[in-house]
Design a protein around this nucleic acid. Structure first.
Lengths: 209, 209
DNA sequence: GTCTATATTCTGATAGAC
DNA sequence: GTCTATCAGAATATAGAC
């Protein structure tokens, strides 16, 4: 009889390293995290990190790709109802984005840096779970314009606006806390408010009847 | 007769290092840039970097402060008219921001990285040329709320919104060009549009009478 | 697979000749 | 002021015993 493998609760060394790395990279970014720190956090020996992942860079890429995939996967579930009104979709999108960034405040910076590194191969997943939702959203948007519900607008603007309103406070968070003299708790609470406000603002922008 | 010094076209070693450093730090952030890289890019010897600037950190701070000071100085000129309506101010702010980012599209990424490097001491200039404008803007904003022209709103939101709408497209530019299949020219043209659109959107958000 | 010990590389900084 | 050579330390990566 073969030795049983546990694919559900994977507490293998490999998985332990990945979990610790995910947490650290996500919180602190690539450069600030040291391999010894990852080894310590996952309770494994430093040498095993290279045994399993060849290099810190490779580990980083794997972990972040998984982060991004998980996010997209979740987002695709959030947007799966094709009967949702477009503003309901935007509201769900904002909520899911903000919940993710609250837990994972470095993800935004990672993505922005990856974009500027011309590493946006990371976004060309062969099996991008968001592709369908994105296409549906675009179609729905064009239809709303045709029906006169939305003032015609260059897609670059609507994309910039939705993403900008959601993501920017997280990118600027450390400065905002300092400049506006607010606590982490107040920041989080303001982000909760934005879940409702952003769809309202977007609606106002698009001059809905 | 003393040797003439050229203070207008300063091609001194010191200046060459600063220019190369400015470009690299702006593109890649503090940690990702190595002193050897700066030396190579400026065509000088590595030792001279420390000779002139004592340390990488010191060089970074000087360069960063200059970048930011130039921007803030320009912005303060733009916002100098206290009789401007608050939405005129926002329009001028958007224009100046966008013009800066068009020339220096990496400045945004640079600032965001600096913020997350906990190097935002750099923003605490002793002689911040924007301080007065910022205070005036805040006062004007509060007054508009008192007068019922603007729905009361948490300052974190208005700050996030203005900066987010202006800056995000530049942060996401490489992805946007690819995802939306648009040219650099079309992007630039859309950014020109935003100079007018952003104040309109902000106005809509704030439910002006 | 896991560990200890160590090799190797990278990086900021400096000493000292010119 | 500028260069060559090099140090000191940190950090990544690997060899080899178990």
């Amino acid at each position: 009889m073969a030795k049983p493998t546990n694919k559900i609760i994977d507490s293998s060394t490999e998985e332990k390293i990945k979990e610790a790395a995910k947490k650290l990279f996500t919180q602190k970014g690539f450069n600030a995290v040291k391999t010894r720190e990852i080894a310590a956090a996952s309770g494994i020996n430093l040498a095993l990190l290279n045994y399993y992942f060849r290099s810190k860079q490779k580990l980083f890429e794997i972990v972040m790709a998984e982060n991004l995939f998980a996010f997209k996967n979740g987002m695709s579930n959030v947007l799966n109802d094709d009967h949702d009104d477009i503003f309901v979709k935007i509201e769900k999108m904002a909520s899911y984005y903000i919940d993710t960034l609250k837990v994972n405040p470095n993800l935004a910076l990672f993505v922005v840096n990856a974009i500027h590194d011309n590493q946006h191969d990371i976004f060309d997943d062969k099996l991008d779970p968001l592709q369908k939702s994105r296409n549906n959203f675009a179609k729905q948007f064009m239809k709303s314009i045709e029906e006169g519900k939305i003032t015609p607008i260059n897609p670059i603007h609507i994309l910039s606006n939705i993403i900008g309103l959601i993501v920017m406070p997280f990118l600027a968070k450390p400065m905002m806390l300092k400049r506006l003299k607010i606590s982490d708790k107040e920041f989080t609470s303001a982000m909760e408010e934005r879940k409702k406000l952003i769809p309202i603002w977007i609606k106002a922008m698009l001059k809905i009847n």
